[in-house]
Write a protein that binds this DNA or RNA. Structure first.
Length: 305
DNA sequence: TACCCTGGTCATACGCAGAC
DNA sequence: GTCTGCGTATGACCAGGGTA
């Protein structure tokens, strides 16, 4: 079995997880419509915890597949990149697993790894969209899975953001001499903060680099030029850099659209997202939850007796 | 006016080094 | 051994400007 075979099979199995319910955690049904409204406002707090559970359960799920038996084993790396690797073939295939809770305001998972990490296209990104079975309570259910190559995501990110001198994508510095926890492995984005006059000056500097000045490159030579800009002009670190929601990767955009269009308990996921995320519409939220989830006032009365 | 995009902030966590 | 600081990392929400 070759690296790309493992990736292909892994992709197929991960995609087959659509509709799968993880029996790892269960949120109890709220006892009243008011409790349901309150729960709808805080359910996203579960996202990091459930996201992690989904990540390591995905590894178990892959190891349960007979296709891989006798060829190697999937192992979780935490911390480490990617989240799961297949020990048994080289180059080592892996999946970086990102859980997405589509009632959140945006996909907050980031992908900051350098293009340099994907020389053999051996690492893919698997995004798993999940919701509680009953929208705001129940067990986590996978709505859909999107698997795309890590290289394509890194390239989409760099091409989307990099626009010198206005916006710079910088590769990690050489931090090999630092202790492990202080070593940099991620790219970062920087936004120009100087005056218009300084911006024109910076533009002239970029123009002096030649015809490929605007073309992003992770090579040391090109990165050295970018660091010259950072040293001469004011930039700010962009804390939203590389959010999966913002890098305009065609596969991820298509996946987002398909998830938001899914029908889930009487509305599309996108409609639930808008409704539950809106301010001052508690009565509307309450009515929708009562209508589509069957939460009744009488239930609360029975439970309180 | 609703929606989208961008910029910003907050909360939390980890692992290591150095001080005590 | 414990505490604290540092640098890095992740995930969530909110505000404001631009636009259809």
């Amino acid at each position: 079995m070759q690296t790309q075979d493992v990736i292909r099979l892994g992709r197929e199995h991960l995609r087959s997880m659509s509709g799968h319910v993880f029996d790892v955690l269960e949120v109890k049904e709220p006892i009243s419509p008011d409790a349901a409204v309150n729960l709808s406002k805080v359910i996203s707090k579960l996202s990091p915890l459930v996201g992690n559970m989904i990540e390591f359960n995905s590894v178990e799920f892959l190891n349960d597949q007979e296709d891989f038996h006798g060829h190697g084993i999937w192992q979780r790396q935490d911390p480490g990149f990617p989240d799961t690797i297949f020990q048994g073939v080289t180059p080592t295939p892996g999946f970086e697993i990102k859980a997405w809770f589509p009632l959140a305001t945006e996909i907050t998972a980031r992908f900051k790894d350098s293009q340099n990490h994907f020389a053999h296209d051996q690492t893919h990104v698997a995004m798993l969209a999940w919701l509680p079975e009953q929208l705001i309570f129940g067990k986590p259910k996978i709505l859909g899975v999107c698997v795309v190559s890590g290289l394509s995501v890194a390239q989409a990110r760099d091409n989307h953001y990099h626009n010198p001198p206005d916006y710079l994508v910088l590769e990690p510095e050489d931090t090999a001499s630092r202790t492990q926890n202080l070593q940099q492995t991620n790219t970062n984005g920087y936004k120009f903060q100087g005056t218009q006059e300084e911006f024109r000056e910076a533009q002239e500097l970029v123009a002096s680099w030649g015809p490929n000045a605007m073309q992003y490159s992770p090579t040391p030579e090109y990165q050295e030029r970018l660091r010259e800009l950072i040293a001469r002009f004011r930039y700010r670190l962009d804390t939203n850099f590389a959010k999966m929601d913002r890098i305009v990767h065609p596969g991820i955009e298509e996946f987002k659209t398909s998830i938001y269009r899914l029908n889930f308990h009487g509305k599309t996921v996108g409609e639930w997202n808008k409704l539950l995320g809106s301010k001052g519409r508690d009565e509307e939220i309450r009515t929708a939850l009562q209508e589509h989830l069957g939460i009744r006032e009488e239930d609360a009365e029975e439970l309180l007796l």
